[in-house]
Design a protein around this nucleic acid. Sequence first.
DNA 1: GTGAAAGCGCTAACAC
DNA 2: GTGTTAGCGCTTTCAC
Lengths: 354, 354
Amino acid sequence: MGESGDAWHTAGAAGHQDGGVVTMDDVAKAAGVSKITVSNVVNGRNRVGEPTRLRVLQAIDELGYEVNLAARYLRVGRTGAIGLLVPELERPYFSQLARRLADRVERHGMHLAVERTGAVRERQLSSVAKERVQLYDGVVLSVTGLTPDDLRRIELGRPALLIGERDVPGTFDHVVMDNVGGAELATGHLLATGSRVVAMVGGSLDHAEHDMVSLRTQGWIRAHESVGLVADLTLVVTPEELDMGAARDVVHRLLSERPDVDGIVAITDVVAFGVLRALADLGRSVPDDVQVVGFDNVDEGEYSVPRLSSIEPDNDAMADAIVDLLLRRIGATEPPEPQVVMPTPRLVLRESTR
Amino acid sequence: MGESGDAWHTAGAAGHQDGGVVTMDDVAKAAGVSKITVSNVVNGRNRVGEPTRLRVLQAIDELGYEVNLAARYLRVGRTGAIGLLVPELERPYFSQLARRLADRVERHGMHLAVERTGAVRERQLSSVAKERVQLYDGVVLSVTGLTPDDLRRIELGRPALLIGERDVPGTFDHVVMDNVGGAELATGHLLATGSRVVAMVGGSLDHAEHDMVSLRTQGWIRAHESVGLVADLTLVVTPEELDMGAARDVVHRLLSERPDVDGIVAITDVVAFGVLRALADLGRSVPDDVQVVGFDNVDEGEYSVPRLSSIEPDNDAMADAIVDLLLRRIGATEPPEPQVVMPTPRLVLRESTR
DNA sequence: GTGAAAGCGCTAACAC
DNA sequence: GTGTTAGCGCTTTCAC
């Protein structure tokens, strides 16, 4: 048959004859049936006689045939894949979310692919992301860092679900953390266990934006209010990036200006790890000199030194809701009513708090 | 026009008329040209007059047209996507590899999607993985944990490149770490700086398998040999899993049996973090009582307490090689000669060693 | 139980 | 510069 083909690509791994892009027609010819019968066999539709089935199966095996997904997709409109679009691949929160989603999606016979949107905004989301998203039956989109205005522009052209922020046009399914409530819970615990000067590392006072950072900062403020204190806004410090390095640096600065800080709420667990690192640098003992609490309850918190107390947003419940809502939307013929799910967070106490 | 379509999926985000799966034909009709002219405009082929181009562009905009990638792919055979298949999404090594690859791949105008193969073996790799891989122009496959025999079975039907193990059929492009050399370097440093009883946490003595674990264990043995010592094989301890929790547990056990251990080589950085956690539990000071060195030089090593010394396999050079080799193979019309790349590792000293 | 015809949306050739 | 023809590989009627 053909002379070139796919087989060589992997440099002749298995023992196929010659590869050569085997089509259903080839199989049909070899088995002495028609294309459609091959299709029926491949897709397990039972309207085909056992002897024919066997002959077809054998031909498939001999020729090393494999369905062409692009063709099938063009015809059927389904790829069986769900896309998860996140701003960064290596943030533990996202990779652990990916793991949870992959588990659940596979349970439904589909699979998950993870892509990075980068420090994407507006234009990029509406054009770049839009194109690549086509090869998924549905998309989970993390919109951390996008303004409500950006969000209004998003139009992916297929079933989609948002995670990450709270205030959203109201036209998307949306699974969110209780950012305010969680931060309030965390801060409240520090205040209740003797901390008097509780800083918010990674927070922001830009109340206009209803993004994760501002919301968690509000929770920190509210916790003060609800015990009759007024939060000292100079204790909100904002690192360049929400990573460990920047967090560590900003804490060095904070503690040189405000050595009286005896509690730190970190905007995320990753930031909290940077905080712990800085406190170790400075010889402050945790939790005796300074209590620290994070947010997200990432796996690594179990093993940091000291172990990190954190807010668990109920990540499993969120993952459940995400795939349920998305699959519902994928399966629907009519656009279902957009829904918002916000599980109740709880505080996980480990060694970094009293 | 149509009444249903894509638009509703995202619940009417943007302001398209009605959606309705707009095709090139629709655009062509609206602009008063032919399908192919629309195609030419969309793909930026300049053989189209400026006024026509403008009319087409406007029609595209008005109708909210978007190319159908499945159709294009069926025709052209390229999706512009590279797949990265890893056993686990949340291992820092993999997510950081993903970041490096995504950077480079995007520089070439393509994009990267990451999928999980799970604790996949044989059958799964040759069937499951094979299907889903079709929508990528090329695939980077991490084969950690597969036997050489499994590897021989892999036939993905498209340009592929292996990472992770050393001994491989020799028919794939292959980018590997110098596992033996790296572990030898790490162990050598501990021995040279006064450690006398150096355990290998996460190692394995199953020399039959030439997987990462065995290779790094060999490096540990060799380092002893090259300074005239003979490695005490009872110091090789194997946790259930290569994660922090199991590593921590196994170190607890190790140190209760062998309190004289004064150096630990961890098979990976993640294992090393578990080791550090255990040593903190046991009140051993690092590096004074016990030196610790990891492998992979994952970002988190900068921020652990204490900061982790580690083997840097030259991850950037590996990422460069991976995309260069893969793109070469994708672009080629003839199967290029399979190539093996193994950068030289170096030791990064931080606080966990003397 | 099996097959023939049609077409999903796109682009490579080759006209004009 | 622009259009026509053909076909990528598959599945969905509907007939036999």
